[in-house]
Simulated assay, not measured.
Amino acid sequence: MPSDTSGVDDLASSLHRTALGTLLAIVGILGVGLARRLPDGDYLIGLLGVVLALGAVVWISSLLGEGLRER
């Protein structure tokens, strides 16, 4: 089903998702790095890292789903 938006709007939306996904990937990598502190006993920092990493994965997945729906 074709959408009613122009190609420029689709391109802008795609670039927006790409930029946000890239930033979220960086946050996810930072979260994994923080989560590696869990075995050392730094539970607060480790749990924060787990939350950051999982949140980034969920948000990136929703961006991918949005992009596929827009297609």
Rank of each mutant, 00 (worst) to 15 (best):
V51P: 01
R36A: 15
G55R: 00
P2E: 15
D42G: 05
D4L: 15
L64H: 12
G31I: 01
H16N: 11
G67D: 01
S6M: 11
A53E: 06
G49N: 00
A12C: 11
A56V: 10
D42T: 04
M1E: 15
V32C: 02
L44Q: 13
S14L: 10
D10V: 12
G55L: 00
L52A: 07
L11I: 11
L30N: 01
L23M: 09
L48Y: 00
V8H: 14
L15Q: 10
L48R: 01
R17E: 12
H16K: 10
L68D: 02
W59R: 13
S13V: 07
L34D: 06
G67L: 00
R71T: 04
L23G: 11
I26N: 06
T5A: 15
Y43E: 13
T22Y: 07
L68Q: 03
L54G: 15
D10M: 14
L52Q: 01
S3M: 13
L24E: 03
L63T: 01
G46L: 11
L54W: 13
A35P: 00
S14V: 07
D9A: 05
M1Y: 14
S61K: 08
R69M: 10
A56D: 06
S3R: 14
G55S: 04
A35L: 03
R69W: 04
R71C: 02
G28A: 13
L47Q: 07
L30W: 03
A35Y: 05
E70T: 02
R37A: 10
G65C: 02
I45N: 09
W59K: 11
S14T: 10
T22W: 14
L34I: 11
V27Y: 00
A19P: 02
V8E: 15
G41M: 07
L24D: 02
V50L: 14
I26V: 10
S62F: 03
V27F: 05
L20K: 10
S14I: 00
A19G: 09
L11D: 11
L68Y: 11
A35H: 03
A12Q: 13
L54D: 10
V57W: 05
R71H: 06
L44C: 01
S61L: 09
H16Q: 13
G7N: 12
L38M: 10
P39W: 06
V58T: 07
I45S: 14
